[in-house]
Design a protein around this nucleic acid. Structure first.
Lengths: 136, 136
DNA sequence: CGGGATCCATGAAGATACTG
DNA sequence: CAGTATCTTCATGGATCCCG
């Protein structure tokens, strides 16, 4: 059993950790905005309500599946609202909710930080790569 | 060829998109902080320098591979510094760089937003789930 | 102690086809 | 128009073994 101790300990740690993470608000938010399409969709909605197909074109490159899936997730979290107008060709509009709009603001803050520090980051990256792999 | 148009258009869009994303500073930052271990490691380092094994224990649940990999990425981006002390049992200390510290601050901002809005989000989520799946 | 290298399972993203 | 359902592919994380 002694040889299992290390693995066991890690698993114990992971369990406790998962539980901890599950109730960590930051985690949820981080997971959301870390999603490739969430931020893009959110800023696409920043200008105003958009229809399903409009979002598909605005984000260009997203598959129907991911578009729907992401939208559903955002709707579930109360970040966007979904309004169905049962006309002949059904019409569905998506819009930011107040909370969603405030999240867009937060993304704006992140964007500002990113633009202010990207130069330093890329410089560090270039230097790092140059140091580790001098010749061919 | 007419039947390929849709797929082609999407692929064209995706190519242009990837190029666009590649030079979008926000994307890099979002990808970084979206990483499960990055934020955890960063806050673990907020209190001061830590050794490799200390970080492993502090974050509890991370595998050696991810710990090393994440640390390397952060080092490459100039967010953490790596100091090797070639004593008998080698000693390696990791610490936040100024840029890294400022990123921790940004994470702090995100945390504040998260804690301020998690209630609304969870409420929306509960309501959504209740609406879509009333009985069993 | 602090990793590097390798193999493998899993889950997410994408393409495709079909429906109300 | 606005999805849903299914299949396949592929990247990511994790476990393990080994080395300086």
């Amino acid at each position: 059993m002694a040889t299992m101790t290390a693995a066991e300990r890690r698993e114990r740690g992971r369990e406790a950790y998962d539980a901890y993470l599950a109730e960590c608000p930051s985690r949820h938010v981080l997971d959301r905005i870390g999603d490739k399409w969430v931020s893009l969709l959110l800023v696409a909605l920043a200008d105003g309500p958009r229809r399903y197909a409009e979002l598909g074109r605005a984000v260009a490159g997203v598959s129907q599946k991911m578009l729907t899936q992401t939208l559903r997730g955002l709707e579930r979290d109360g970040l966007v609202s979904r309004t169905v107008t049962p006309s002949v060709p059904a019409r569905v509009d998506y819009a930011l909710t107040p909370v969603g709009r405030s999240l867009v603001d937060l993304i704006g803050v992140i964007k500002v930080w990113a633009e202010g520090n990207i130069a330093a980051i890329e410089a560090a990256r270039t230097e790092y790569d140059a140091r580790e792999q001098p010749p061919a």
